[in-house]
Amino acid sequence: MTEFTFTVKDSSGIHARPAGLLVKEAGKYSSDIKILHNSKQADAKRIFSVMGLGVKCGDSIKLVINGEDENLAKKELMEFLSQNL
């Protein structure tokens, strides 16, 4: 299992468009990917779950990745987040 935290810089937070991109990106990996935000937890491969977190600009989120390709997923997702959010 591996994890990292990320602070959202996009002024709209995780709104529909980046949530959609994130879900698609997470869907590329076989690992189980969870997003933790405040006391809530979401499955990064499910769009309603991700949007339901209500992540706003300046919020920090923690990604917990568990599975065979977790290291690759972590590397790629860190890159993805810094570019899109």
Binding site: A16, R17, G20, V23, K24, K45, R46, I47, F48
Partner: peptide, 16 residues
């Protein structure tokens, strides 16, 4: 047009 991409992801959502 991107909204329809989101709509498609919603239709694929496992929770839904």
């Amino acid at each position: 047009a991107e909204i329809f991409e989101i709509h498609k992801l919603m239709l694929e959502d496992k929770d839904y």
